[in-house]
């Protein structure tokens, strides 16, 4: 084989490699956005209540099954169901925090961890008992449609999820920055005793925050279901990713969660490309451990 032919071949494979790389990068960013949305709820709850919600993953699974049932039983499209499920999950989160988690844990952090773990065990296995361990998905007409950007083909539902996540993050930021409730949430996060002295109902604000965090999961579930599968254990895969993002972005930081989500999405996609699917996950955990062990305040330096 001549030198020129070899050069041509390697050039061609480099182009191909670049294409694969770019498409992995784009897909990572798109998936990362949904990760960010899941992490957003987790980090908000942590930032205000200073608790780690272990039931976050199971609640996401519950939301995904809710989307599944809404589609199978009532023929509701996920993008329409989102307007029903989001308020529903807000109320559920509110009630869960106010009437279960708070009374059961007597204000002790270790107890909160255990109570949310208990909730996650209950949700996960109740779903297992009802739906069995089969993996399910829903059929939507746009499930496999793609948008062409240059040489890249991007899945339409994933692009929608990406845009919607940015919109939700912006809305959340607006809510926190501008509304009275947002001000109260920020006040409670900073100094709950002081906030209580100013007449803020701390228990109510805690529950509202937990409700918002849970509502984020309903939105995430509606955005995920057109392209993802659901089974009773699916939340576990997401929850550790969400923890990683929250730790990476700095516990309680919304901007950090967004950036962390995108980074993790890209890392997962690229390490999956280069190390294979099963070892690809390792990348996420290694980031998680390294950040926790060596920089627990996160990349963006939020107070841990």
């Amino acid at each position: 084989m001549g030198v020129r032919a070899r050069a041509f071949l390697s050039h061609g494979s480099m182009m191909l490699k670049l294409d694969i790389f770019l498409s992995a990068l784009a897909n990572g960013l798109l998936t990362g956005a949904v990760y960010a949305l899941i992490a957003l709820g987790l980090t908000l709850i942590y930032g205000v209540l200073h608790i780690i919600n272990f039931a976050h993953g199971a609640t996401l699974t519950l939301a995904m099954f809710a989307v599944f049932v809404a589609h199978q039983a009532f023929g509701l499209d996920p993008y329409i169901a989102v307007f029903i499920l989001t308020p529903l999950f807000f109320v559920m989160g509110y009630a869960l925090q106010r009437f279960v988690i708070t009374p059961a844990s007597h204000g002790d952090d270790g107890n909160i961890l255990l109570v949310t773990l208990g909730i996650s065990i209950i949700i996960e296995n109740a779903l297992l008992a009802i739906f069995r361990s089969d993996t399910r998905s829903i059929d939507v007409p746009y499930g496999f449609s793609v948008i062409e950007v240059g040489t890249l083909f991007l899945s339409t539902p994933k692009v929608i999820a990406f845009v919607a996540t940015l919109a939700v993050a912006a809305l959340l930021w607006l809510l926190l920055a501008r509304s009275d409730t947002g001000k109260a949430i920020r006040a409670v996060a900073k100094e709950k005793t002081g906030a209580a002295l100013c007449g803020i109902d701390v228990a109510h604000i805690y529950a509202v925050t937990f409700g918002i965090g849970t509502a984020c999961l309903a939105i995430a579930a509606c955005l995920l279901m057109p392209t993802f599968l659901v089974n009773p254990r699916v939340g576990n895969a997401f929850v550790l990713v969400a923890f990683t993002i929250v730790v990476l972005g700095g516990m309680g930081s919304i901007g950090g969660a967004l950036a962390g989500g995108l980074i993790i999405g890209v890392v997962e996609s690229l390490s999956g490309l280069y190390f294979g699917e099963s070892l690809g996950q390792i990348g996420i955990f290694l980031i998680f451990l390294i950040v926790l062990l060596f920089r627990p305040t996160g990349l963006f330096g939020a107070k841990a």
Binding site: A104, V115, I121, I122, N125, A129, P232
Partner: peptide, 13 residues
Amino acid sequence: PGIDLVVFGVLLI
């Protein structure tokens, strides 16, 4: 399947 674990979760709480 899983019903025993639901009971465990309730018991934990």
